[in-house]
């Protein structure tokens, strides 16, 4: 077989592998984040007080997890497009310390909004192509 055909087959395989890996990683990471944020929302519920070690630990764990995901996602997406979640998580730690329940809950909703936006940003769609 002509060498060039072999190179092209290898290149096509690499492209397919990158696309599949991207879809799996993005969907996996974002759905995990979505699940954890939803769990936090359910845990907080209608509570007026959020200055608890449990909630703080949840946010710290979420932040650590997102940092690791970001490290992988930065190979696939522009860092500036996905830094909002990290910024919001940092703010939330301050909200916990200040016991600002309203701001904290608003940030949780904002996180879900960002994740929804990332699904659209990283997926294939008519809007993304054009």
């Amino acid at each position: 077989m002509n060498k060039r055909y072999i190179y092209i087959i290898i290149i096509i395989s690499i492209l397919i592998a990158i696309c599949i890996a991207e879809q799996l990683l993005v969907n996996g990471y974002l759905s995990t984040m979505e699940t954890k944020i939803t769990d936090i929302i359910e845990y907080v519920g209608d509570s007026e007080t959020i200055d608890t070690p449990e909630i703080y630990d949840m946010i710290v764990n979420l932040e650590t997890e997102w940092d690791s995901y970001e490290g992988v996602l930065c190979f696939l997406v522009n860092l500036k497009d996905i830094e909002d979640i990290g910024i919001e998580l940092t703010k939330m730690k301050i909200f916990i310390v200040e016991d600002s329940a309203i701001d904290f809950k608003a940030s949780l909703s904002l996180l879900l909004y960002y994740i929804d936006g990332y699904y659209n940003l990283m997926g294939i769609s008519f809007e993304n192509i054009f």
Binding site: I18, C74, L76, N78
Partner: peptide, 9 residues
Amino acid sequence: SIPTLNGIV
């Protein structure tokens, strides 16, 4: 901030 893959792919 732009991944190198954005140019390579």
